[in-house]
Amino acid sequence: MRPAYLARRNPTVLLGLVLATSVVTLFLHDVPRLGALYALLLLAALAGARFPPRRLALAQIPFVLFAAGIVVVNALTRPAPEGLIIGVALGLRALAIGTASLILARAAEPRALMVSLVQHARLSPRIAYALMAGHRMLEHLPGRWRTITRAHLVRSGRERLSPRQLGRCAFALLVGSLRSGERLAFALESRGLTDGPRTVWRPVPLGRGDALLVAVCALVVAAVVAVPA
């Protein structure tokens, strides 16, 4: 099956669009516009990123809790009627930004994003590959965390670790990771990684489809902002 429409777009472009949209929301304070934007983003997540509806709904739960907190706090800490309205607007803003981030996380594969940032956004290859190596390290962290906490549990002979012991585990994780970081840096450098010119084996394309996407997004967002409420 062909990847979803947004997954076929250049990830740097997606990152830029999500960032731009998030920034635009900071200048909107009214419920209808933010609501419209949120609805459009949900639509993009379903159609453009092919988010399974159930997964999308579940992923909204933490944002909804967060937004609910915002609504309550603003309703309680601001003058009466406007407080609630501002709260709802701010809550919708959090929902919209969260959904945009979900789209990015689903559509942009980390390696493709990094490679395209090097190709199209002049990110330093040393930073990009250090981040990719960091990604690999991150994949190993849950396992190492389990190993460390289990070892502490066995030694403490108790049912659960105290916050103090958890802190020790965290510190052990940090020390071990710094050590592997040293070896990682050596390995990367011994593969010849510098900031000098390099070729790219499987480049991430940037094409007309991306230009079209940018144009459409710009038009839609402009329309949402411009149309009188």
């Binding site: 390696r111 990719m132 690999r136 990682l184 593969r191 010849g192």
Partner: peptide, 17 residues
């Protein structure tokens, strides 16, 4: 260093242009 085997082996070649 990297998440995909092929990328790992390709990295030194890319770096050497």
């Amino acid at each position: 260093c990297l998440s995909r085997v092929a990328d790992e082996v390709a990295l030194p070649l890319e770096n050497r242009r």
